[in-house]
Write a protein that binds this DNA or RNA. Structure first.
Lengths: 147, 147
DNA sequence: AAATCTCCGACTTATTTAGTCGCATATTGA
DNA sequence: TCAATATGCGACTAAATAAGTCGGAGATTT
């Protein structure tokens, strides 16, 4: 269906929060989970992935938590998504070498690859900092946009 | 993971084939399935959806099959994908009104909506006709691009 | 009338995603 | 020093989605 998983959503939400509240020091996974009603353990694992990808820095112990490893203006949404979900492909058959029985007959992969590159470009230009600049949307507006 | 389903792939492959071989008259779902090693029944249902969306015209009976309902230069990849998969959203929580417990706290939806619009724009500019113009890619090139 | 093909819905299976649990390790602060 | 609090990690279960199958009805040509 061409959509991000909740894990990616959670990761982006957490990154945005940390970018917006960087002056408050480290923020624990529990605090973040409570703030946005996200299951703690699920979020913790996501944050750990972001640490591994060097997008976050962690501090253990009492009053520990997570902080951004870099200026949010230098972190792209694509980096966050990639760290959580791995490389993204719009085509369903390009994630492994020979996993697609139609591979030798697939005639649309190359055009879709171009689309893929465009999407990556858009996501790489969207920074975590820009996520904080967007205004809150009203639920009403959301619904009307959908139909 | 931000990827299309196989159904969408199948649909695009079929549309491309019909665009390339429009001079040969109608093409049955069985022929298409054999040509591209796609399960017949699965493909048949996809083609039926494309008929409902008025992208294909069907002809029943002996020697029947499917033909494009319009000039392939006037059919976009987005139309094909939408007909098969329904509306596409990059966010995981925007497919229904109140299905997301974080909805009132989701701070990244609006920025992602913009990304979504960009993707739709790209896909709407890619026509079925253009799919036929792309050269066949070599499997070797594919693998090297992945890493 | 028979062969061929579209059309439609229900069903099963496989894969992916989401979330949970338990335990280990590190660090702080009283 | 020791208890409290936090991250780090892997295995596990449950839910959701995708993929594919099956059976039968209706349409059209030869």
């Amino acid at each position: 269906m061409l959509k991000l998983t909740k894990k990616a959503d959670y990761g982006l939400i957490a990154m945005r929060h940390l970018a917006e509240n960087s002056d408050l020091g480290a923020c624990s996974s529990k605090d973040l989970a409570d703030l946005y009603s996200i299951p703690q353990e699920a979020l913790a694992k996501i944050l750990q992935k972001l640490v591994k990808a060097k997008l976050l820095a962690s501090q253990q112990g009492t009053n520990g938590g997570y902080v951004l490893a870099r200026d949010p203006r230098l972190i792209s949404a694509l980096e966050v998504i990639r760290a959580i979900e791995g490389p993204l492909f719009i085509t369903s058959c390009s994630s492994a070498k020979g996993d697609c029985s139609q591979s030798d007959r697939c005639t649309v992969r190359e055009p879709l690859r171009k689309v893929n590159r465009t999407i990556e470009e858009v996501l790489s230009k969207l920074t975590v900092w820009e996520l904080t600049e967007s205004p809150e949307q009203s639920p009403v507006e959301l619904v009307t946009l959908q139909q």
